[in-house]
Structures are given as structure tokens and as C-alpha cells.
Measured scan of single mutants.
Amino acid sequence: GTLHLNGVTVKVPSLEKAIKAAKKFAKKYNLEVQVHGNTVHVH
């Protein structure tokens, strides 16, 4: 999967790991997580 954090793109081995990391990051910075196919966006 691919993880987008505020314009930074990170390749992640699995989508589940990407979503987990995204949710952790989003919670910390009070951001929103959106999943588009195998790409996770945090903004």
C-alpha cells in the first residue's frame, strides 16, 4: 500500500499496516484518514 501523510508519500508493505499507521498519526495530529483503493491519505 501507499501512505500519504500531509504530502509525504510512504510505501508500506501491507495496506493494514498503512491504515494502522495512518490512524495513529491522524489521532495524534487530529487529522482525517481516507482510504482510496490501496492508498491511504492523511490530511
Results as ranks from 00 to 15, higher is better:
residue 1 G to S: 08
residue 1 G to P: 11
residue 2 T to C: 15
residue 2 T to L: 14
residue 2 T to K: 10
residue 3 L to A: 03
residue 4 H to Q: 08
residue 6 N to S: 07
residue 6 N to D: 05
residue 6 N to W: 15
residue 7 G to L: 08
residue 7 G to K: 07
residue 7 G to D: 04
residue 7 G to F: 11
residue 8 V to T: 08
residue 8 V to A: 07
residue 8 V to C: 15
residue 8 V to R: 12
residue 8 V to G: 05
residue 8 V to Q: 06
residue 9 T to P: 07
residue 9 T to A: 10
residue 9 T to I: 15
residue 9 T to K: 09
residue 9 T to W: 14
residue 9 T to Q: 08
residue 9 T to F: 13
residue 10 V to S: 04
residue 11 K to I: 11
residue 11 K to S: 10
residue 11 K to V: 10
residue 11 K to A: 09
residue 12 V to H: 06
residue 12 V to I: 08
residue 13 P to H: 11
residue 13 P to S: 14
residue 13 P to Q: 13
residue 13 P to Y: 10
residue 13 P to N: 12
residue 13 P to W: 12
residue 14 S to F: 09
residue 14 S to A: 05
residue 14 S to L: 06
residue 15 L to F: 06
residue 15 L to V: 07
residue 15 L to W: 06
residue 15 L to C: 04
residue 16 E to Q: 11
residue 16 E to A: 14
residue 17 K to Q: 11
residue 17 K to P: 01
residue 17 K to N: 08
residue 17 K to G: 07
residue 18 A to G: 02
residue 18 A to L: 13
residue 18 A to M: 09
residue 18 A to I: 09
residue 19 I to R: 01
residue 19 I to E: 00
residue 19 I to W: 07
residue 19 I to V: 06
residue 20 K to S: 08
residue 20 K to Y: 07
residue 21 A to E: 06
residue 21 A to D: 05
residue 21 A to H: 05
residue 21 A to V: 11
residue 21 A to L: 15
residue 21 A to K: 09
residue 21 A to T: 05
residue 22 A to Y: 07
residue 23 K to M: 13
residue 23 K to C: 15
residue 23 K to N: 06
residue 24 K to V: 06
residue 24 K to Y: 12
residue 24 K to N: 07
residue 25 F to W: 13
residue 25 F to G: 00
residue 25 F to T: 00
residue 25 F to Q: 00
residue 26 A to E: 00
residue 26 A to Q: 03
residue 27 K to P: 01
residue 27 K to R: 11
residue 27 K to W: 05
residue 28 K to Q: 07
residue 28 K to N: 04
residue 29 Y to W: 09
residue 29 Y to P: 00
residue 29 Y to E: 00
residue 29 Y to F: 09
residue 30 N to M: 09
residue 31 L to T: 01
residue 31 L to Q: 03
residue 31 L to E: 00
residue 32 E to N: 09
residue 32 E to W: 11
residue 33 V to D: 00
residue 33 V to W: 07
residue 33 V to M: 06
residue 33 V to I: 13
residue 34 Q to D: 06
residue 34 Q to T: 14
residue 34 Q to L: 13
residue 34 Q to A: 11
residue 35 V to A: 04
residue 35 V to G: 01
residue 35 V to W: 08
residue 35 V to T: 03
residue 36 H to V: 14
residue 36 H to K: 09
residue 36 H to G: 03
residue 36 H to R: 09
residue 36 H to W: 09
residue 37 G to L: 06
residue 37 G to H: 06
residue 37 G to N: 06
residue 37 G to V: 07
residue 38 N to E: 05
residue 38 N to F: 11
residue 39 T to W: 10
residue 39 T to R: 09
residue 39 T to Q: 11
residue 40 V to M: 04
residue 40 V to T: 02
residue 40 V to E: 01
residue 41 H to C: 14
residue 41 H to P: 02
residue 41 H to L: 14
residue 41 H to N: 08
residue 42 V to I: 14
residue 42 V to W: 05
residue 43 H to Q: 09
residue 43 H to Y: 14
